[in-house]
Write a protein that binds this DNA or RNA. Structure first.
Lengths: 341, 341
DNA sequence: CTGAAAGCGCTTACAG
DNA sequence: CTGAAAGCGCTTACAG
């Protein structure tokens, strides 16, 4: 490999100092009152030779890496994959690159990953935190590192975050069902106390309460195999014969639920209406199409990056911690439209 | 932020040289014949203080960043998202981190991204190259940088790659249809001359030829809107009334195709059998379930990382370029099983 | 067994 | 207007 050109080589070649070149390359020629002639000459030479400064050296001396650490629950999940795509695009537009990792919602793994990212001096963090990460997030903030939590937040930590309005989204979805005259609405959620789940549950409960309806809730253990989840679902459906609608707290649960309903020979929506939280491509092609609470992922990504960039561009390291709550869209499809049949 | 401990601080504190500490930290204590007592002392101190070496400084002096550049077509696509997840896991196991980006299959964008990754001195590359990237891949190889192409390859470039056996997978899928007595099998592909598409098309043509059947091929322009794609599909289906089976070269096309068939009131598989290339979660829950050619993504990811790690661990920078071809699995579901009805 | 010193390739406070 | 020098925090060839 042809040895890469360094700033020193250029300095020698052009018989000027590294300092001058560095100033010119960093757009400080004017500020440092370097002659236009010299500036031109250096810029021309650099363009000709295709010189690119070594970012490692630059980072070591400035302390900035221009890298954002993106820690999502699982990059392969539809929601996080979309998020990653949008975040990447916006970050690159601002000159930042993305180092990513999946936490698998595992506390110890996440701690390890934060430590790795710190060793690499990433400039800022976008994190979907697993339960129990409060102290670690606080530690990042205390150390003056820009952090934006995403998808969920901690009530006890004063951090920036960008989340969906899970409570209202869930409330609206259930309200829609009650308006459609469904009376026995089951809720199927993950066994998790993270904010996003809690808010979804509370929205459901609130909407039922307003109509004097009785809650029926199934909590599916987090780390269940698909088979076990299926069994839980089937039991739940069979034990609540009077149910006429099911609200699933995640799209994954909805997939399993729809399969379970199929096995039990339930017709959707005649025998059971279905709404899923978190939209998915597949909901639009399935027959019947599935009504879903859609998260505006591009919007969530945009707000996350903007919030982070604001912190990165701030002079102080005591950041204003911004809380951003984004409304969801209820996308009505066939799985709730009994009357259209 | 509490100033981070550096190797120099430790040297001062312990009254020994940075050299000695560096040797101990890098596991060269034995080799450098440093006393066990001193080694212990240093290790203990470091553990106590939670000292972590600055990776930037380390990278600058060793020239290794322990970062792999992952350049996929689009991180949000199911296939690439899965790939990213598996690659990440395996890379982290070997101490590597992942810097990722989406090429959008855009040649200029990809060139720009390679340049950015080079500036950051990533140690190796996994790339799903867009058409036209031959010279750039060759340049990386010539400069002694480890590169593994993924999902597609260039016939004219002697590079490592890991790809599916697209030709055989496609041939087998069509062969399956002919054995099922389908006689008029249409093929719907993207208008692309990249290796993966070409191999899929050729496998289809070969299988038809062996049964003396007539090809019917629709090429959908790459950058079409969904609406336009839909129109192409509907026209194609209407103009070929005799078709009894459709083979889609990508899962995205299959989604659109299934929608189109729905609009035209075709029943699957009675009026039209369907096979999709590249499996998708949704194919298993759709009614009827969709037969698909599945790519073993974990296997592809594993081979890619292993191939790259072999190069990274090699002494020489003139690497043996490995070509890995992975077989696909035909997953038979309801959309091809007329006789079961 | 251990350390002083040079080097990786940048930036920037300071001096003139 | 421009440059010599110190510094970022590591590694390692060399010397003893």
């Amino acid at each position: 490999m042809a040895k890469k050109l360094s700033i020193r080589d250029i300095a020698n070649e052009l018989n000027i100092s590294k300092t001058t070149i560095s100033f010119i390359l960093n757009g400080k020629a004017r500020e440092k009152r370097i002659s236009d002639v010299l500036t031109e000459k250096v810029l021309k030479y650099v363009a000709e030779k295709g010189y690119k400064p070594n970012q490692l050296a630059k980072s070591l001396s400035t302390g900035k890496t221009m890298i954002i650490g993106l820690m999502v629950e699982k990059i392969s999940d539809y929601f996080f994959a979309q998020m990653a795509y949008h975040v990447e695009e916006l970050a690159y537009d601002s000159g930042y690159k993305i180092l990513y990792c999946s936490t698998d919602n595992d506390l110890l793994k996440t701690r390890e990953l934060i430590s790795l990212f710190r060793d690499r001096h990433v400039d800022g963090y976008i994190i979907t935190p697993p339960a129990g990460l409060e102290k670690d997030v606080q530690a990042l903030i205390d150390d003056g590192l820009p952090v934006v939590l995403f998808d969920r937040y901690f009530e006890d930590v004063d951090s920036s975050y960008v989340v969906l309005d899970n409570y209202k989204a869930s409330y609206d979805a259930v309200k829609y069902l009650t308006q459609k005259q469904f009376k026995n609405i089951g809720f199927i959620e993950l066994d998790s106390d993270q904010s996003q789940m809690k808010d979804r549950r509370n929205g459901y409960l609130k909407a039922l309460q307003e109509s004097d309806l009785v809650p029926m809730v199934l909590r599916v253990p987090f780390s269940n195999s698909p088979d076990k989840t299926m069994k839980h679902l089937i039991d739940f459906i069979e034990q609540n014969k009077n149910m006429d609608a099911l609200f699933f707290a995640t799209n994954y649960l909805a997939f399993e639920g729809v399969k379970a309903l199929g096995k039990l020979k339930f017709k959707i929506p005649q025998d059971m209406a279905v709404i899923a939280f978190d939209d998915h491509q597949a909901f639009d092609i399935y027959t019947p199409t599935i009504t879903a609470v859609a998260q505006p992922i591009d919007e969530l990504a945009k707000k996350s990056i903007h919030t982070l960039l604001n912190m990165l561009n701030s002079q102080s390291t005591v950041y204003k911690q911004e809380k951003v709550i984004v409304p969801a869209n209820l996308i009505i499809r066939d799985s709730t439209e009994k009357n259209n049949l």
